[in-house]
Simulated assay, not measured.
Amino acid sequence: MDVVTIGEWLTLWVMSFALGMDAFSIGLGMGMLRLRMKQIIKIGVVIGLFHMGMPLGGLLLGKQISSHFGGIAAIIGGCLLLLLGFQMIRSSFKPENEPFVTPVGFGLLLFALSASLDSFSVGLSLGIYGAKIALTIFMFGFMSMLLTWCGLMMGRKVQKWLGSYSEALGGLILLAFGIKLLFPF
């Protein structure tokens, strides 16, 4: 391996870690719901697949539309996280124990979409520079899956400590992350 190849690998790993931290943060919030291990594994795999599909779409579209969709993807992702966070907080104050939004079915797809929208814009940018598609999407998906699992497992532990307040805390985390996407500081 030459220095350029090592630098490219290192750059892609750092980028995949940064994108995976979004999934970790969201997983931390969603992990405060009462989730079984089977659900946690499924959520991580779905998030990983979305973190492969979204940058792949971005890489393929590349230069043609990168200037138009970069900001829109962050806005849509931020709004979805605000919606999910608000619904989690609201349902934590309801007398029933069933949360309004759960990472199952359509809720899981919404969750995965909101966690991976930013990787679409990164894919657009990488498409301009001619990044290696297979390597890039593999790294993004793998790292996001691992970090989602870490976030979900940590959220699960926190949920046990906080009890009924954990869903509200998880909602606040999602709200904060949505605000961060909408208003980058």
Rank of each mutant, 00 (worst) to 15 (best):
F86I: 10
G70M: 15
P103Y: 01
S91Q: 04
H51F: 04
C79Y: 07
M52D: 07
S16P: 04
G141F: 04
L126G: 00
G105M: 06
Q87V: 03
I89D: 08
G105T: 01
L172A: 11
S114I: 02
K42N: 09
G58W: 00
M154I: 15
L28V: 04
E8F: 10
L175W: 13
L80G: 00
F100D: 07
P95N: 15
G29Y: 07
F177T: 15
L172F: 11
I26C: 08
L172I: 00
L84R: 09
M21V: 06
T11C: 04
L113S: 03
K157I: 09
H51Y: 03
G171H: 04
G163S: 11
L181R: 15
L61K: 14
L174P: 09
L182W: 15
C150K: 15
M143D: 14
G31W: 08
L108S: 02
I75A: 08
K38Q: 07
A176L: 13
K63Q: 10
I75S: 08
Y129S: 14
L162A: 01
I41H: 06
A134W: 13
D22G: 11
L61M: 14
K42S: 09
L162E: 06
T11W: 08
P99D: 11
C150F: 13
M52L: 13
G27K: 00
K94R: 12
S144H: 07
L81A: 00
F138L: 15
P99T: 10
P95I: 05
Q159D: 04
L146P: 11
M32E: 03
G107S: 01
W161C: 10
M88P: 11
G31M: 05
S16L: 03
D22F: 10
L49T: 03
